[in-house]
Amino acid sequence: MESFDFPFFIEVLVGGLLSGIMYSLVAIGFVLIYKTSGVLNFAQGALLLFAALTFVSLLERGVPFWITFAVTLAIMAVIGILIERTVLRPLVNKPPITLFVATLGLAYVLEGGAQLLWGTQVHGLDLGIDDVPYVVGGVFISTFDLFAAAVAASIVLLLTIVFRYTRIGLAFRAVADDQFAALAIGLKLPVIWAAVWIAAGFVALVAGLLWGARLGVQFSLSLVVLKALPVLVLGGFDSILGAIVGGLLIGASEKLAEVYLGPFFGGGIESWFAYVFALAILLIRPSGLFGQRLVERT
């Protein structure tokens, strides 16, 4: 075996960790909804596509950046509230799997709607960040990846502050803890649900912009959910910390596997590697990364 190229290894590792943060960003959108309503919201990817497509279409029509951002955010908020009203509220207390399939249907509606509205062509999205490699100790790091990581970190910080120090955050945690108790002390669930859907819409917009800038804004953007799902399996559907650590782990292991194992398989293993990796970890540690038990009911 030829000598191990350590700087190259670090480069791959850092690249993997940075793209892992992008996975985490998508995964956090899932966690927000899951914690408050117990739904695995498959439509998170479609929301992301809808947000990015709306944003880029407005921008292309000459609307200034920040106004576009605000308008898109408002549209996402309205969509979030509509979803909560028309889809989830009638299905409250239904088995989780029913809710999941409903969000699958929702994903179809949103994907179809976004493209019917804005067309199916691919849009480039330039966020104004030059992707010049940044060199640290002989290791090349993408500036864009660093920027994306910084944005993801600030979102997590923002969410943490909101949930820890505001009234709505306190209510959110109460609902996540015990819905019935939260109801009993007079918290208005619909208000909290709406707030959470708006937050998920916001996360979808930010993730959509970052992913859109990287991949181009097009239908396949909604498929980033498929990248987030193994992260959730690994980190737990209900843990923001799990989403972050899971994202980093998956991102890093996926890139390392692609570079070091890929050649043995003929490449292209990133389509399934994350799933097999997450499953393997779960088989070793059935309770997941953070010991969330899959409680059996009698």
Partner: peptide, 23 residues
Amino acid sequence: GVLDMSQRILVGALIIVFLIAEP
């Protein structure tokens, strides 16, 4: 293209309607 998209919307909406009205 339009057919494809409307079909997606219709199928998705049907799923939701069935889950709510005729589970």
